[in-house]
Design a protein around this nucleic acid. Structure first.
Lengths: 356, 356
DNA sequence: TGCGAGCATGAAAGCGCTGTCATGGAGGGC
DNA sequence: GCCCTCCATGACAGCGCTTTCATGCTCGCA
């Protein structure tokens, strides 16, 4: 910066003022300084600036993984937002317990950021407390934390609506496949289960524990076993609601392998609307991670600027049912194929338009 | 830090030495300082430290997108590596030309990093030059840049091997579906095409431009059109080599929709071995983005430490063919019982068997 | 013409660290 | 017992900025 000052024939103070766009610089000097900065290919050092301003120009983002569709989409919409605000995006991946522990141990070092976005965490109380004491805004994404700024979808209602769709089609034996994250991260599993249960309750159907099974996402074999458990029930389900599309696809895969036609014999409903849902023509409850990411980013920017303003805003993002070809009324005759299926689905579509 | 010093009854110099693990601190003092630091929940400021050391403790990573399987896997293996070396990971997403331009415009500001990893870029000469002048190690990932450290797979050889597999099965009319990135980013398209052509050449098969078609990844319709062009040839191909799994799946989807059994009538070969390849039982040429990411990370760490050492190391990562169920000798009889039912009717786990 | 207001600019003090150099004390060799 | 060495520690300068305060200038108004 001294070089620029010398070249422009001004003091470093003036250079600093110019480069930060302060108004108290005459047009002529401004032009000279900018010229000099350009010629020297100069850019202010964030480190040095942050040392005195206390703002780091960085936002920290903690995610459980980067391999998932959800995170990819969320960060993809978050990134340009931060960049537009001239903020760097620091990503911390905490796939397992060890990484998670280490993340929290090093938290104090995280004052190298102006805000923290926390994705998909099941926080313990101590963890929540240490985040509270971090001295920067913390935004909880895809999770609902009371009294702190959060951006999330209402999983209960979403699952309720999804289940209602199956009920409206005439299903009475509806299974729910939940996922048990080995990593300790939750993807709102319990809330979706809750919505499912609420819908059954609404419809006056007594809960049946046998119809709720667990699997690991991404594990075909585990899912096949779970489906096997359902198929060997005295009264097997006519519809399966899977907590994630990935699992729904594994369910379909298993059923087809077992020569059980979907949706004629068993309907399958997913949750997320991942790209793979489209490939498999899967009816699903859609959420938009890119909208969630954007919203979270905007909330972060607001909290960075306004300091104390509006700290506990909650943003609930919408979900909606996307009817495709894996749900149909129970006992739809197989032999009549496409035409029949189509009629059934378009009829149901008319009767059921109700995005949440 | 002054607080810690006071609490431990030592000078800040000693605190600094202790916290950096220098050996010239007596055990007793060390214990006292560490205790004090813990009690005050203290961590050194990266900004302040970097101001004097010149090291930022940050690695910048530029990626074209975060939505892709490749980036997710690569960054997932890169992240823990950097974290173990106590480096932050700064991610820059440049999905389009505007973002890309802005990335290069702000490059000087990037001295806020100790190294830069550049993923999947087709660099112009000026861009390459500005990266050279960045004053930090730049590692090119999934691309081959002469004279600069790069980590990549040999796409030519990989595609050569893939094509040979089809030739070995007896195919002679082999199509190649390439992708035209709208974003200006290359996924080694040309090199894979080159490998395909080399294999044909090896086998003495004259090139046929009609057999090379283009599509956009992720665009079912465009792929359907491309496949349509192949199917309407005077002599249609018996095998299709798609440059990416995603496209291969779209090809399969289109063929099945058109009641053309895969692999009996047309074999399909992909490239990447994404998770979706497994779902579709797709034969494919596998590369391992997580290995690539790890290797790139290690190269980055080495270059950060060794400064001038070994600047132009190239790491070529292996690929290998994964035979699954979408390739077979041409003209494999369709009517083979179970096999046929599964593949043609219920789709063997692909979920696409229903004609519309 | 003179004087105060207002504005553009500069000088200088840190921000929180690191690294160099100085200092003092303990230990070993003669 | 004395001197030299070595080691642990402290004082202090300075990294590259921002920001406050001071300064000098121009302008407007009396």
């Amino acid at each position: 910066m001294a070089d620029v000052a010398e070249r422009a024939g001004v003091s470093t103070s003036t250079v600093s003022r110019t480069l930060r766009g302060l108004s108290t610089v005459s047009a002529e000097v401004r032009a000279r300084v900018e010229q000099a900065a350009r010629e020297l290919n100069f850019a202010v050092s964030r480190q040095a600036a942050s040392l005195v301003t206390g703002r780091t120009g960085t936002v920290a983002v903690q995610v459980p993984t980067l391999r998932s569709w959800f995170m990819g989409a969320a960060l993809s919409s978050l990134a340009p937002l931060l960049r537009a605000a001239d903020l760097e995006m620091n990503v911390y991946v905490t796939p397992d317990l060890a990484a998670r522990t280490s993340f929290f141990e090093r938290l104090p070092a995280r004052r190298n950021a102006d805000a923290l976005l926390v994705f998909c965490f099941d926080l313990t109380d101590e963890e929540a407390a240490s985040l509270d004491n971090l001295g920067m805004p913390v935004i909880y994404v895809s999770q609902h934390v009371a009294g702190r700024p959060s951006v999330y979808v209402d999983d209960v209602t979403a699952a309720l609506h999804g289940t209602r769709h199956l009920l409206n089609l005439g299903h009475r034996r509806i299974a729910f496949v939940q996922t048990v994250g080995a990593t300790g991260f939750s993807f709102s599993s319990n809330e979706r289960l809750l919505g499912y249960q609420q819908a059954l309750d609404e419809a006056g159907i007594p809960p049946d524990d046998d119809l709720v099974v667990s699997t690991l996402p991404g594990d075909k074999r585990a899912t096949a076993q779970a489906v096997g458990r359902l198929l060997s029930l005295r009264e097997p389900p006519t519809a399966v609601f899977a907590e994630q599309d990935e699992v729904a696809v594994a369910v379909i895969w298993t059923l087809r392998r077992a020569q059980i036609p979907v949706p004629e014999r068993v309907s399958v409903l997913g949750f997320d609307d991942q790209p793979i849902a489209d490939w498999f023509d899967l009816t699903t409850v859609a959420q938009s991670p890119s909208d969630i990411g954007r919203e979270a980013g905007e909330l972060a920017l607001a909290l960075i600027d306004d300091a104390e303003a509006d700290r506990v805003r909650h943003v609930v993002m919408p979900t909606h049912l996307i009817p495709r070809r894996t749900t149909a009324p129970p006992g739809t005759p197989q032999a009549e194929g496409v035409q029949r299926v189509r009629n059934a689905q378009s009829g149901e579509g008319d009767g059921m338009a109700k995005p949440s």
